[in-house]
Structure formats: C-alpha cells, structure tokens
Design a protein around this nucleic acid. Structure first.
Lengths: 149, 149
DNA sequence: TCGATGTTATTGACGCGTCAATCACACTAA
DNA sequence: TTAGTGTGATTGACGCGTCAATAACATCGA
C-alpha cells in the first residue's frame, strides 16, 4: 500500500471541513425558522411519512441509522418539548409507537421550506450538474468500499 | 431559484452520511491505537508543529477553526489526562502558552500511523486520482460559495 | 409450563460542544 | 493616572451522543 498523498489528504480534510461548515449554517437557518435542529428534522420526517402505519422506535432508529439509545434520549427530549408522543404497541407490549403532535407537525412544516432551500442555495447552487453527478458517484464508491472493509 | 432536485438531495445526504460513517470508523481505529480521539489529534498536531515558538490558545483555536470556549474545555480535559500543559505567556499575562507532554507526544506518535493509514485505506483507496481531483474542486467551490453567502 | 435466549426500549454516567457570562489583563485617550 | 474599551481565556449550564447496564416482554424448545 502506498502512502497517503498530499492531494488525498487535502481532499479528505476539505470534505470534513466543508460538510461541517455546511451543517452548521443550515442548522442555524432551520433552527431560526422553526426551532428545530437538523436532528429533530431527521427524526420527524419518517414519523410523518409513516402516517397511520405504526412506526416503532427501533424501526426508526434503523431507518435513520441511529443508535437505539441515542434515539431514545432524543425522543425523550422531543417529547418534553411537545413535538412527539409515544404510545404502546398494540401487539408487542415491549414496543413504543411514535406519533407526531400537532405542534410537531406545525414546526416541521415551518422547517421544511428553509431546510430544502438552504440545501439548494448553500450546496446545490455552488455545483454544476456534472459535479453533482461526480459527487454522487464518489459517495457511492465510498459507501461500497466502506461496506466491504 | 429552481427547486432542489432528487439528484441534488441524494448527493447532499450521501455526503453527510458517508463522512459521518468514515469519521466514526477512523476515530475508532485511532482511539484503539493510541487512546486519542480525532479531536485530540487535531489539537495536538499544531502544538507539536509549533515546536519552540510559543503557541497561544487563541491562535490554535483559529488555526483549527474552533470556538475558543470549546478549545478551552477540551484543553482542560487533555490536561487532566496528562497530554498537554498550559503555562503563562511571558509578555502577555492574559495569555496561555501550550505545550505537549512526553506522554502526549508518545500518544501522538502512536496515533499518526493508524490515522494516516486509515485515511488511505478507507477513503483514498476507494477513489481514483480523477475522483480525488474532482472532489477537491467540489470542496473548493463549496468553500468559496459559502464564503460569499 | 417453564426456562433459556433474544429483542425492545430505557436509563445513568460521562465526555463533548455551544452559548452566555465572567474575569483578568492590555491598550488608548483624556 | 485613570476611565473606558478591547482582547485572551475560562467557567457554568445545558443539550447532545456513546457506552454499558438493566428492565420488560417475546419466543421457542424441552
């Protein structure tokens, strides 16, 4: 295995820095608009998407690739803030079923516009269609590589 | 302004996910090898690099793009763990000058091999030279874009 | 039916990161 | 010299994320 080159190192650290900076900027925008953090948003979207079909917290955890414990903590805080509710699963008594509250839904609606617009204006608008495509491929290659190592 | 496309959304969320996954994997490798987190590493490298020229904590904070308060907290923990020391600046009595300890240096030496190798094997080896170049350009475009918005 | 094993979800402890407040010192202008 | 302003650094409070432990329930085989 050859050594890491300067160019490779720059690409990696650049990717780290720029994603962090983007997250921060976008997070601030969404928080200002709706009082939701990006993680709140991540959690709420699948709950709404599930609609009437009961969504268990372990399913959600897997869907968004979170640790169960992390999700449990975060749901606790979100419940305190009145964004979601947890009820018992009708068939599996261990289970918790997740619901969004009215105010959670209102906040999510407030958030979604700014959320999407910030991705557009801060990220997508900076890149050409070719770059978007190249980046997608890079990401997929990295994911595949990671999965097999 | 047009709306965010599917492709753009996928590129963005993919980038987020894959950088997070890579950080996690690399972090675990370095931690196992030397008991240092990636943030410890980030902090120690410039201290060593400064060598004998006194490095103030505000300078370090700026160099690594950290909040002063965050750095202060982290330095406190690192000092407790015996990785660094803080002494008074000889001319500016407000100042703190940073030093790495022997065991900090030893840990850093332990960490650097695995650190670089993990970037190579988990990131760089997955991509072609062309992709590295494309990614670098993407990152730079994003940074420029971010700087002017 | 009972016991072993697996699964769901939560909890506590602890390190981390952010924000606002604070303290100590330097610098400048009257 | 001193009052006012600016800067370096730390602190406390608090929400977040990880890890290990635990509680509650399901499931399956004897």
């Amino acid at each position: 295995m050859t050594r890491l080159t300067e160019a490779e190192e720059r690409a990696w650290s650049g990717m780290l820095n720029v994603t962090a900076a983007l997250r921060k900027r976008m997070g601030a925008i969404v928080y200002e608009a709706a009082g939701l953090s990006e993680t709140d948003y991540t959690v709420l979207v699948p709950i709404v998407y599930a609609g009437d079909t009961p969504l268990r917290s372990s399913e959600l955890a897997e869907a968004i690739n979170w640790d169960r414990s992390r999700l449990s903590h975060h749901l606790g805080r979100m419940e305190t803030r009145g964004l979601i509710r947890r009820t018992q699963h009708s068939e599996d008594n261990r289970g918790a079923v997740l619901h969004i509250t009215d105010s959670g839904l209102a906040a999510l609606r407030q958030a979604s516009g700014p959320h999407l617009r910030s991705i557009k204006s801060l990220f997508a608008d900076a890149l050409s269609a070719t770059q978007i495509e190249a980046l997608t491929e890079i990401v997929e290659d990295l994911e595949r590589h990671l999965a097999t190592h």
